[in-house]
Amino acid sequence: MKFGKMKPQRRNRLMIVGLVVLSAGAAVSLALTALNENINLFYSPEQIVRGEAPRNTLIRAGGMVVENSVKRSTTDLQVSFLVSDMAASEVMISYVGILPDLFREGQGVIARGVLNDQNVLIAEEVLAKHDETYMPPEIMQTLAESKAKAEKNGTSL
């Protein structure tokens, strides 16, 4: 069967199928490549302290902001603070910029950034959520795990 002699309907259908397959293939490969380059894994303070988090890649880290740990520069908008899993582990986060309105000591935050050699997360974004009662699922899980661990070891929080 020659292409040129096909019925117009059949030729159309073939064209449509070809278009669909091509565009779907292109889109899927495009999407998967882009996905692989742009996912940011979450690490708990404990994982970071134990050295399980990779350096020089964009990751997310979070926990409760430790009371009295927020230190500001007097010349620019540099600020650093500790986040904790409310058990043994704390990680320092350093950020230059404006913190969100709901950023407060004792509240949960998530930061996106790169770990340096001193295990300090150099953040490019700090998120605290709209709602007072809202807890990001990542932090909820971290806190639940550290609490469970503490109970198993017989130490209280």
């Binding site: 495009l30 999407a31 996905l35 380059e37 996912i39 940011n40 894994l41 990542e138 899980q141």
Partner: peptide, 29 residues
């Protein structure tokens, strides 16, 4: 849809690892 649900898929596939998919993904696609 893929980018929006990927954190859920990833979590299910990797036994609870949390990720987020950033704006660069959406822009690129």
């Amino acid at each position: 849809l893929l980018g929006t649900l990927y954190p859920l898929i990833y979590e299910a596939l990797t036994d609870g690892k949390k990720i987020s998919v950033g704006p660069p993904y959406f822009n690129a696609v």
